[in-house]
Design a protein around this nucleic acid. Structure first.
Length: 286
DNA sequence: GCGCAGGGGGTCG
DNA sequence: CGACCCCCTGCG
């Protein structure tokens, strides 16, 4: 059902910051600077006009509730930014740069598959692959004369063979995607048990039983889909930034993940994941 | 222009 | 610790 929702007085909300900071792969910029994306069975366009945020599109359920959940509107980012800004100058600068970032509450299944695809890959290609996957196995939703496709269900993707998946251009990740899908299909593991697991370390262990899910992917899934703001995914960019700012080792490859995790915990504590997003976005764009 | 390394939000054996 | 699929980039 086509709906519209206008959000006022939301200072920590900039579509570009939210959709370009690297947490999601299915939002695309329109000519007018707004973004259109698909999540669950919704197709939404998000536009900032002055102080107003305008959400418009096809929505299952009440658009206000859907947005509140997906865009994390009940979390006070002003307070978070204030806390993080006081930690040091770097964080302060990065937060000024990415002041409109919010961590989306993305679909767990979609996030797991998307970040398996992200391994040793680059963002433009990740987006192309996911797009193809949705076109082939998702459902079509028409909005304003264009066709959009939902992310495939477990059952639908479960019908695909390793070879089928390979044709999407996923390369060596074909087997990983296949195996993980089959694990959910066969109920060896369920989304529900992952969603209800409170303990971060136990949750990480469970996620890492999935094929193609290592520490980094597991942490991304926890941060971008399960609101675990304390986890600190370490990738090549984060290593680069942290080394440049705090450690200053000549060869950044020698900096251990352990050290980075420890540093993040000491400095950023329960907000490490958010700090990571601000730093990552700042250094990668600049 | 063309061909060939080099490397990309890691994971696995 | 090296290979891994695919694709895009930079350099000769």
């Amino acid at each position: 059902m086509e709906q519209k929702y206008i959000l006022e007085n939301c200072t920590s909300f900039k579509p570009a910051d939210i959709f370009e900071c690297g947490q999601c792969f299915r939002w695309n910029k329109e000519e007018d600077g707004s973004y259109t994306g698909v999540f669950k069975n919704n197709v939404l366009n998000v536009k900032k006009e002055g102080e107003k945020i305008i959400f418009e599109g096809i929505c299952e359920g009440d658009i206000k509730d859907v947005c509140r959940d997906y865009f994390d509107l009940d979390t006070n980012y002003e307070e978070i930014k204030e806390k993080l800004s006081n930690i040091d100058e770097y964080l302060k600068t990065s937060i000024e740069y990415g002041s409109g970032i919010r961590i989306l509450n993305q679909d767990l299944w979609e996030t797991i598959i998307s970040f398996i695809i992200s391994a040793n890959n680059n963002i433009p290609r990740i987006k192309v692959i996911i797009d193809k996957m949705c076109k082939k196995y998702g459902n079509c939703i028409k909005y304003k004369g264009k066709e959009y496709y939902t992310f495939p269900s477990i059952e639908k993707l479960g019908e695909a063979s390793v070879e089928d998946i390979r044709t999407l251009g996923v390369g060596f990740r074909d087997k990983r995607i296949y195996e993980t899908t089959q694990m959910f299909l066969n109920k060896e593991i369920t989304l529900q048990e992952l969603e209800s697991e409170e303990d971060t370390d136990v949750l990480r262990e469970k996620l890492m039983t999935l094929s193609g899910v290592g520490e980094k992917v597991a942490d991304c899934v926890m941060l971008f889909s399960l609101k675990k703001y304390n986890v600190f995914p370490v990738d090549v960019w984060v290593r680069r930034v942290m080394n440049e700012l705090y450690i200053k080792e000549d060869d950044e490859k020698k900096v251990s993940k352990k050290l980075l995790q420890k540093l993040a915990k000491e400095k950023y504590a329960s907000l490490a994941g958010l700090a990571q997003q601000y730093l990552f976005y700042w250094k990668r764009e600049a």
